[in-house]
Amino acid sequence: MTEYLLLFISAVFVNNILLAQFLGNCPFIGVSNKVSTALGMAMAVVFVITISSMFTWMSVKYLLIPLELEYLQTIAFILIIATLVQFVEIFIQKVSPTLFRTLGIYLPLITTNCAVLGVSIINIRNEYDFMHTLVHSFSAAVGFGLALVLFAGIRERHALCDIPKPLRGTSLALITAGLLALTFSAFKGLL
């Protein structure tokens, strides 16, 4: 149990997927102007990363390794993720229209979010078993969501400030992200 707890804390705070491992930075800079959209995106990402890394793990264990096709890993993963996202979209639309309204528009964007593919590959590289894969992917996604929502909160404040012209837009967003990453690096002492 402690082992899983440590894995959770390390993935959320210490090795934060956005701020320490640089996965999924495009939506981080792109879709983070409002807390409400950031929350929707964060939920969709937690959902997709957890499910897709389960499937990619199983595909490696039961398909690619027995058939000795490990070199096809990248192609297999991206196809699994793309199909899965499409499937999840249709499924949610059918089962829960309310949930679809909150998550719907973010789902297609997630296919090209490198965090999804990245987490799947990291799981395989670290040779996690199924439970570790599950816990690690879920906590990495929670870390993504946490950073995204915090960042969106800061950017909402920026909208009200008088910012020097050359700093506006991506430039200030990146510097803010740098300061946020600096804060998160303080968690290193935690483990």
Binding site: L19, A20, Q21, F22, K165, P166, L167, R168, T170, S171, L172, A173, L174, I175, A177, G178, L179, A181, L182, S185
Partner: peptide
Amino acid sequence: KLAVEPPGAFLFLGLILFFINLASM
């Protein structure tokens, strides 16, 4: 050390963008 650690990546890219914007302005 900051320059080669993760926060440095964001800060330096942000600063370079700032200087490019400044120059073009």
